[in-house]
Design a protein around this nucleic acid. Structure first.
Lengths: 125, 125
DNA sequence: CACAATTGCGCAATCG
DNA sequence: TCGATTGCGCAATTGT
C-alpha cells in the first residue's frame, strides 16, 4: 500500500529529525529522488518498448498465419486433385492391384512408413 | 508541453482571482481533481486490459500457427506419397494416357479447378 | 543495508 | 465544459 504512517522525514519534512541542522539530508533526499525519477523513466520506456514489440509480434504472426492458411489451402487442393487423378487411373487400368483401392486409408499410413511405395521416406524424429 | 505559464488558479492557488472569497472554488477544484483521478484510473485500467489481451493474442496465434505448420507438414507428406505412388504405377501401366506425365506441372494448374480429374484448366486470377 | 527497478497513484497539460 | 490520455514526480515495494 502507500501513504506514510510513520515515516521519518521527506514529504514536506515534518520537523527535523533532531540532528545537525543544515539541510545536508535534503541533498541526499533530492539525489535519491532524482535517481529514482531516472529509474522510473527508464523502466517506463522499457515497458513501452515491450508493449510495442508485442503489437509488432501480433502483426507478424497474423501475416505468417495467413500465409500458412493459403499454403494449406493449396496443398489440400493439390492433394484432392491427385486423388481424383489416381482414382480415375485405377478405374481405367486392368491392373488388379488397384481395384477398390482406398487412397485415404492409404494416406493414414504414410506418416511412419519408410519402406514400400517405392521411395518416400518419412522418419519420425 | 507542461508546466504552468499563466495559469489562473489551482496549484497552490496563487492569489485569489478577485471574486467572492469563501473557497467556493476549492470545492470545484477538488471535485475536478477527483473526477480526473477517476478518469485516470479508468483509462489506465483499460490500457492494461488491452496490453493483456495483446499478450493473450500472441499466445493464441502461436498455437494456431504451430497447428497450421503441422498440417502443412502432413499434407506435404501425403502429397509426396501420392505423387510417388502415382508415378510408380503410371510407369507400370499400358494406359498411354499417363505415359511421361508430369505431375508437378499438372499441379501447377489445379488452383481453381476443384472438380474434373482428367484434363487441366488454368484460370489465373 | 544501499540501490535500481517496478508499480500504484495523483497532478496538470493536452486532446477530442 | 468535460472525460480520456499522457508525461511526470512521489513514495512504497520488490528484486539485486
Amino acid at each position: 500500500m502507500l501513504l506514510d504512517e510513520d515515516n521519518e522525514m521527506p514529504p514536506v519534512k515534518r520537523g527535523r529529525r533532531g540532528v545537525s541542522d543544515a539541510d545536508d539530508e535534503d541533498d541526499d533526499y533530492r539525489k535519491k529522488r532524482d535517481r529514482n525519477n531516472e529509474a522510473v523513466k527508464k523502466s517506463r520506456f522499457k515497458s513501452k518498448q515491450r508493449t510495442q514489440e508485442t503489437f509488432t509480434r501480433v502483426t507478424k504472426l497474423k501475416a505468417e498465419n495467413q500465409m500458412l492458411e493459403e499454403k494449406v489451402k493449396t496443398l489440400t487442393k493439390d492433394l484432392q486433385f491427385l486423388k481424383e487423378l489416381f482414382m480415375e487411373y485405377a478405374s481405367n487400368t486392368q491392373n488388379p492391384k488397384f481395384e477398390g483401392i482406398d487412397i485415404d486409408k492409404l494416406l493414414e499410413d504414410v506418416q511412419d512408413d519408410p519402406k514400400d511405395s517405392g521411395s518416400s521416406k518419412t522418419k519420425r524424429k
